[in-house]
Simulated assay, not measured.
Amino acid sequence: MATHVITGAGSGIGAAVARRLHARGDELVLHARDAGRAKELAAAYPGARTLVGDLADPDRLSWAFSHQTLPDRVDSLLHVAGVVDLGPVGDLTPRSWHHQLNVNLIAPAELTRHFLPQLRAARGHVLFVNSGSGLTANADWSAYAASKHGLKALADSLRQEEHPHGVRVTSVYPGRTAGPMQAKVHRQEGKEYDPSKWIDPESVATTILMAIDLPADAEVNDLTVRPGR
Rank of each mutant, 00 (worst) to 15 (best):
I6V: 12
I6L: 10
G8Y: 05
A9W: 00
G10W: 04
G10C: 11
A15G: 06
A15S: 14
A15M: 15
V17G: 00
R20M: 10
H22C: 11
E27I: 01
L28D: 09
L28K: 05
L28M: 01
V29N: 00
L30M: 02
A32V: 11
R33Q: 14
D34A: 06
D34Y: 08
G36I: 12
K39I: 14
E40I: 10
L41T: 03
A43K: 13
A44C: 10
Y45P: 12
P46Q: 08
A48C: 07
A48N: 08
T50R: 06
L51H: 02
L51A: 02
V52E: 05
V52N: 04
G53H: 05
L55S: 01
D57Q: 14
R60I: 04
H67R: 15
T69L: 14
L70R: 10
P71C: 04
D75H: 09
S76F: 08
L77C: 09
L77T: 03
L78P: 02
G87C: 09
G87I: 01
G90H: 10
G90N: 08
R95V: 13
W97A: 06
H99D: 15
N102T: 07
V103I: 08
L111S: 02
L111T: 02
R113C: 07
R113F: 06
H114V: 14
H114Y: 08
F115V: 02
L119W: 05
R120L: 06
R123L: 10
F128L: 09
V129I: 15
S131V: 12
G134P: 00
T136M: 11
T136I: 08
T136E: 15
T136W: 11
T136R: 15
A137I: 07
A137E: 12
A139I: 10
D140P: 02
D140K: 07
A143E: 03
A145H: 05
L151A: 07
A153N: 12
E162S: 03
H165L: 05
H165K: 01
H165V: 04
V169M: 00
T170N: 02
V172S: 10
V172K: 07
R176K: 12
T177S: 12
A178D: 03
G179F: 08
G179P: 06
P180F: 09
P180M: 12
Q182R: 11
Q182C: 13
Q182D: 12
V185I: 15
Q188M: 13
Q188K: 07
E189M: 15
E189A: 14
Y193D: 03
K197Y: 11
S203F: 12
S203T: 15
V204I: 13
A205L: 05
T206D: 13
T207A: 15
T207W: 11
M210E: 12
A211K: 00
I212H: 01
L214Y: 08
L214K: 00
L214N: 00
N221A: 14
R229H: 13
